[in-house]
């Protein structure tokens, strides 16, 4: 019995000393691969790191989340939603229309201030580990932003959905959107939740 306890102690010690958070490690490195794609642009402006995944689809991170109320912003083109019946007066407080974009915001990010997209994403993943998840079915990592989510491929070489904007269909349905008629978006149900997906192939 003593030997078992000793062995377990050693294992627990090793586990404690070694970084066992392989998801975070892999998520960071795979997001760096996304950032390295030519078509993906990143810049720092107005206190945010802007990551333009594709035209009309970007992902912004506050450089100083302690001082902002919109710490993460997913921005997607608003027209398909408006065409599908979106009533902007019915949007929840964390969603709004700005210019021709529909912004989905999230408040509550912890973390230190950095000065580029890569650093800020790493900070977000390190300091807000509970938001990060691995989606085995699609082999994606994802950040949960309230009811919505942003996912990216763990391995772009074997995945045709390199980045995916995921919106809660229920929230949009309440705002008058006919979720099955949003142009360019895929309506699906996953794990019992109705979702609208915008997959983007970066290759």
């Amino acid at each position: 019995m003593k030997r078992i306890i000793l062995l377990l102690s050693i294992l627990i010690f090793i586990a404690g000393c070694t970084s066992t958070d392989v998801v975070k490690r892999e998520a960071q490195s795979s997001f760096e691969e996304i950032l390295a794609v030519d078509s993906v642009e990143s810049s720092v402006m107005d206190g945010y790191a802007h990551i333009i995944i594709a035209d009309g689809y970007h992902f912004d991170l506050s450089l100083n989340p302690q001082s902002t109320t919109e710490d993460v912003i997913m921005a997607v083109m608003a027209m398909p939603f408006l065409d599908a019946g979106l009533d902007i007066t019915k949007l929840p407080s964390n969603m709004r229309i700005k210019d021709d974009m529909l912004l989905i915001t999230y408040e509550g990010i912890k973390g230190s201030m950095t000065y580029d997209a890569k650093g800020q994403m790493n900070s977000l993943l390190t300091n807000n580990r509970t938001l990060l998840g691995y989606h085995a079915e699609l082999d994606h990592f994802g950040i949960a932003l309230g009811d919505h989510k942003f996912e990216w491929a763990k391995n772009m070489a074997t995945n045709d959905k390199d980045a995916v904007f995921i919106l809660s269909a229920d929230v949009l349905r309440l705002a008058g959107v006919n979720v099955e008629a949003v142009d360019g978006w895929l309506f699906t149900t996953m794990d019992g939740m109705d979702l609208l997906l915008k997959p983007i192939d970066l290759k």
């Binding site: 078992i4 377990l8 586990a15 066992t20 958070d21």
Partner: peptide, 18 residues
Amino acid sequence: YHNFPLNFTLVQLILTLP
């Protein structure tokens, strides 16, 4: 097992060894 797969497996290993 989704978010901490290595922990998930290590815990199983630790429980299996005894």
